[in-house]
Design a protein around this nucleic acid. Structure first.
Lengths: 111, 111
DNA sequence: TATCTTAATCGTATATTTGCGATATACATT
DNA sequence: AATGTATATCGCAAATATACGATTAAGATA
């Protein structure tokens, strides 16, 4: 019964939801934080910083990459990841367009 | 084996992730959009606007409420929901503090 | 009181996510 | 060539999320 109804919504709604989903786990927030704090690209040092197995971290990195929030390049035997800054700007823009109307009408809210 | 490792991360990381999770489904984005566009509180008209069963919508509303993104009050036989504007400000602040460092160092990114 | 309307909750089926160990792959080093 | 190191992927188990119909509860109306 639990068929996927996600495609019944607009592309914009789905995109915003996908962004949010990519950030919906503390491990992935932590990864983004690490990437943001170090200005050089990081490979598997991330694994050492997190309380998770290597395979699990790799999986989280893959999800962030699929969502477009980070990009990764292979550098010899290791991988290098960076934040995709433009993706976050897009996310921000989507959020703003969602709530712009609210900012104006906010004072009329009843609960 | 898939024990919940979420509590191994910081409170801030968990809070940001919880926010994101609440918005990680297009139906919930759509609900927020409806609440933002109408400046008066909405009850179950939301159900009519969405391609989902009443029980499913109710479940999504509950999740948004648990996450603190909306508030709801009972008005006779119906329920009235509103966006919790302060919650979104907090979310925004959390996002900004996550990426402030990146804004400065961005030009050094290597991939 | 009997009935209707609105919305929450329960029970259930299915889908997706999370996490790990094991394995595979790819480059480096000896 | 053999070994070591770094990472991705596979396969599996457990946990969570999604969705719906049925039921319940509470207020409104006949």
């Amino acid at each position: 019964m639990a068929f996927n109804k996600k495609e019944a919504f607009t592309i914009k709604e789905q995109e915003l939801a996908d962004f949010a989903k990519a950030m919906s786990h503390p491990a992935r927030i932590a990864i983004l934080k690490i990437l943001a704090q170090r200005n050089e690209c990081i490979c598997g040092d991330i694994v050492n910083e997190l309380p998770l197995a290597q395979s699990t971290v790799s999986q989280h990195l893959k999800e962030l990459k699929n969502a477009g929030l980070i990009s990764g390049t292979i550098d010899g035997p290791r991988s290098c990841y960076c934040i995709n800054w433009k993706a976050f700007e897009k996310f921000n823009a989507g959020m703003n367009s969602l709530f712009d109307s609210l900012k104006i009408k906010n004072e009329k809210a009843c609960c």
